[in-house]
Design a binder for these strands. Structure first.
Lengths: 214, 214
DNA sequence: TAACTTAATGACTCTTAAGTCATTAAGTTA
DNA sequence: TAACTTAATGACTTAAGAGTCATTAAGTTA
């Protein structure tokens, strides 16, 4: 016997976030252009018409996905940095680990890949992301670096460039997981990857490294 | 007065590579799905019909872009590694610099971004890229690492994971240049970035680092 | 220079998916 | 429980772009 169609429920409050979550997962999987709004709606458990009640266009949905998804995490990381006491390297380590825990292990993990893939198609959104996520994230790492260089804990290196070298492996880990990781036979160990990155930094950045932890 | 239409020229030999080059630049800029074949043809100086003389479909064009673009470079890097004499760190440095010179500074620079963005839409091509580019590239770095660890030049770390941490900043640099770099006001210095990455590795990886060069 | 081969063209068809809107029905109010 | 408001639907319209093919003309051969 055929399943009876579930009765429509009216849930005005929950729809937007359910739709952006569905859109994020499909945008990350297929890319913006290759994602059909009917599939987004279907994954969110509504019809395409309902999607248009909450978002004016496909592009508006994309903007919402990026803007709502990631800002809270940046703010949280800034609070962590502000209240930190201890060595500069401890701060750096805490920032990287927190970023991983709050982005890498959550539903937001796909955003960097999506943003990288679509930046040139949505320069306005890319600009927003650059100013509110990239710049603020870089600034946090920069604070740790400058603190460590001022106290003599770190070697003196060009700060802006070193920030990028430190952040790159974290970003790349996220991007990898949503792209070519599907080709790997055995899944790579993200925890070990982070540990080794931090440990290479401990030895590479510090004048007198503390004991290796790997 | 209106420009006279240029007479058609018949250049059967040159068309395929001109078409894949045009396709690569547009795929990298807009993504596969958002790129129109008419634009690819136009950038290559031919009509859409001509494109279909040389490639059966849009997907076939994509495969050709990836497969033709990058294999020669991998082979060349393997030759360099095979004939290397000197310290393990020198080999590592040479590999990273050569990769940068032969990919990062050429028309192939956009391929990693493209592959990352489209891997899930073209699992077959992704598999090809993974086996013929990623794995072989990782193997080269792995050789340098294992040589250095065996001789006592490097600290002992998990090799597979360390390979990834070493490669990630190079890949990220390429990806960045074809995505969010457009938001930066001043262009970042790729040479300095590479130098600092290598220098952090020199200190972070070696038991007795040679003099810093930054 | 006439006949022939095939590279090149671009107008056309056809499919797909964004976006619309008249209709349905869930939940609320009197 | 009848009247009303608005969330939700899905068939429909429309635009865009992938892929086709009859036609044109560049270059070659006899």
């Amino acid at each position: 016997m055929p399943a009876v169609a579930a009765p429509r429920k009216r849930r005005k409050e929950a729809r937007p976030s359910e739709l952006t979550a569905a859109a994020l997962s499909l945008f990350v999987e297929k890319g913006f252009a290759a994602t059909r709004l009917e599939d987004v709606a279907s994954r969110a458990g509504v019809s395409k018409g309902t999607l248009y009640l909450y978002f004016d266009s496909k592009e508006a949905l994309f903007k919402a996905v990026i803007q709502e998804g990631i800002l809270p995490v940046v703010a949280e990381n800034e609070a962590i940095a502000a209240q930190h006491t201890g060595s500069a390297f401890d701060l750096l380590e805490k920032l990287l680990n927190n970023w991983w825990g709050k982005i890498g292990l959550t539903g937001f993990a796909g955003i960097p890949k999506l943003m990288v893939a679509e930046a040139r198609n949505f320069p306005e959104v890319a600009q927003f992301y650059y100013e509110n996520v990239i710049c603020r994230g870089r600034a946090l790492v920069g604070v740790a670096l400058e603190r460590g260089m001022a106290s003599g804990e770190f070697r003196r290196l060009d700060v802006e460039t070193t920030i990028d070298v430190i952040i790159a492996p974290i970003l790349m880990l996220l991007i990898w997981r949503f792209s070519l990781a599907c080709c790997q036979s055995q899944e790579s160990d993200a925890g070990l990857y982070l540990k080794i990155h931090v440990d290479l930094l401990r030895q590479g950045l510090c004048e007198r490294p503390t004991e290796s932890q790997v």
